[in-house]
Design a protein around this nucleic acid. Sequence first.
DNA 1: GTATTTTTATACAATCCCGCACAAAAATGG
DNA 2: CCATTTTTGTGCGGGATTGTATAAAAATAC
Lengths: 209, 209
Amino acid sequence: MPVRGRGRPRSFDPDEALRLAGERFRTQGLAGTSLDDLSEATGLARPSLAAAFGDKRALYIATIERLTARVEEHLLRLGERGLPLGPLIERLLVGGIDLYFAGADQPEGCLIINTAATAAASDDEVRARLSAFIAMQDRRITGLLAAAGSPAPEAHGRIVAAMLHSLSVRARAGEPREVLVDLAKDAASLIAGTNSSSGGGAAKLVGGA
Amino acid sequence: MPVRGRGRPRSFDPDEALRLAGERFRTQGLAGTSLDDLSEATGLARPSLAAAFGDKRALYIATIERLTARVEEHLLRLGERGLPLGPLIERLLVGGIDLYFAGADQPEGCLIINTAATAAASDDEVRARLSAFIAMQDRRITGLLAAAGSPAPEAHGRIVAAMLHSLSVRARAGEPREVLVDLAKDAASLIAGTNSSSGGGAAKLVGGA
DNA sequence: GTATTTTTATACAATCCCGCACAAAAATGG
DNA sequence: CCATTTTTGTGCGGGATTGTATAAAAATAC
């Protein structure tokens, strides 16, 4: 990688291209996205993408790693606020919901949880990145809970991460934001031991279909 | 649909073909599975599949509906055993793990949670089936918890369903069965109020990667 | 026993997708 | 001011996938 090359400098920001490619991957998945789709999404020609990132699979993995790093930063920043246990967990879950509803015009959930899970079954590299992402979530959330005085940070950290996984799937299924926030609040009070069980306004409407 | 046709009867069991097609879809997802793959998986020629089920998307949706019906039966049968709350939730979660590890030689998770979520973002029909599946889970699990005397069946029912979603994703990521069972036990005791928190043997190994 | 109806299997045409090769453009180093 | 190097955009060929059309096979009704 030329630190300061001699030829023509590239006219695009690689990280921004990665972000745009990730948006498209998030909607269509790895197998469902063509190079033409990615070219359209990023505004770059096919050969430019190939030269910068390799083939489609490598580009997909790069978007996963970019998102993993960003989520980890997000979790670390959350720890600097010194919140007590209950509000911390609620903030953790509602912050996830914010991410799942961000970006496109309709809720799409998480790129990794919702699309890498599909590719993981037939692609060991993708499976390893999915595993690494979840391990990072478990580790960072466990750390946050421990710092906030949780009586069982490891077990409860994995349960909080599990709630995030479901919130992503539910967002993708079209559940409205308020319903997800209610679920997040119920889960937060259960895990934090703050027993206003179903106080946050438990799901009144269950059915969708 | 000829109840008893006059011509040649079909030489295959449609439900079994649906099951085999679902196995392949579970591994590769909708976009990642070709008609040749499905022909190989079911042992039927392409035109036979087309005549019986329509195009690839219709076949995929049919496998989703088949699985939805089977899971609902499974949940209803579980209610006939009259288990107390704690063991009921644990049985619910471990039963899910059993399904996620069944079938292929390596854990694959749930067809709907792990692959329909990908397709849902760009296919309204699939999204509707995903939503219907989750709504069914929430409804049936809520019913089970209510019958077992849960103090907050709706809120806790959705949380139990959420744990199933994460267990499916985690199975797909390659987490070993014992680790998932530990997570299931921790979640069950938290939700049931049986406070042997982290007593089931909380996750000692968190990292993977 | 024959005709009819439905399923099965092979083959074909159209489309899409991928990767690579080629020529033009832009900016630095001498 | 010129040459070199890297990026950019267009175009082409190979391969795969989808959907359908056509002929053979099988079983029931008459």
